[in-house]
Amino acid sequence: MIQWGTRVAMALLGSGLMVAAGATAQPAAGGGTAAIARELSAALASQGAPGAPRFIAAEDPKDPTRFVAAMLLPDLQLMVVSAAYKAPVLLRERVLTRKYQEAYQDLHAASVPEGKVVIEDLLANGLAVKPARNQAPDVATIGGRTVSFDGQWRKARIPEAEYTAAFASAEQEYTRLLGLLVAQAKVK
């Protein structure tokens, strides 16, 4: 798996190429994830210096050992990770003390690999089953399987139905995870 820093650098390079090419189209984002991704982005927008990454983390009520965390790169990308953590007390303390950046880093790097979910939402505008022209795709890694939502299931050597099912599954989980993060962002 490529390090998150490398993926951020690739996204920055890709966005620079899109600007240079004069791309103005936005990807067609999924109905459920578009609104809630914008809601989380807006909630995080007031935090930190302009253009600086923003972080949020929360416990997953479905499992006391699982957490979800996100890093927003304003106007560029929203990266969400959800996984179990071997020392949940430590991560719970980070969430309670609002040390979200440390929680994100710990969860991304030192979480339990089984059942880990990583979603990379380019432009933080919700998942798109296929990106707009001249735009990089959204990517989801669920259960150790990475799917790039570039609309090219033949190139990936998977059936279209499998590609569509992977997108539906990613969108459903992304909606749930974003909901947890929005609720955490509203906690004062």
Rank of each mutant, 00 (worst) to 15 (best):
V139W: 07
I158K: 04
G115W: 13
A57P: 03
R94C: 03
Q105L: 06
V117P: 01
T65P: 04
D121P: 00
A9R: 12
G22K: 04
S82K: 04
V117I: 04
R145C: 03
S111A: 07
L90F: 08
M10W: 08
G144V: 03
A128R: 03
K188H: 03
A128D: 01
L78S: 14
L90H: 05
A168N: 14
D75C: 10
V147Q: 08
K130Q: 15
K116E: 09
V139F: 08
L13D: 06
A35D: 04
A20K: 11
L96R: 15
K188I: 09
K155A: 03
A52V: 00
V139K: 14
K188R: 09
A37L: 00
T24H: 03
P88V: 00
Q77N: 09
V147Y: 11
G179H: 04
E39Y: 02
A49W: 07
Y104D: 05
I2L: 02
L40R: 05
Q172D: 10
A183H: 05
I2F: 06
G32T: 00
I119P: 12
L177K: 01
V8F: 13
A166F: 10
L178E: 09
V19F: 09
P53C: 06
L73I: 05
A20L: 12
I56R: 00
P50R: 12
I142Y: 12
G126W: 11
G31T: 13
A132R: 10
A23H: 00
V117G: 00
R154P: 14
A42I: 07
A168W: 11
A183M: 01
P64C: 06
A29P: 11
M71K: 07
P159G: 00
D75R: 10
A132G: 09
Q77L: 08
E102F: 14
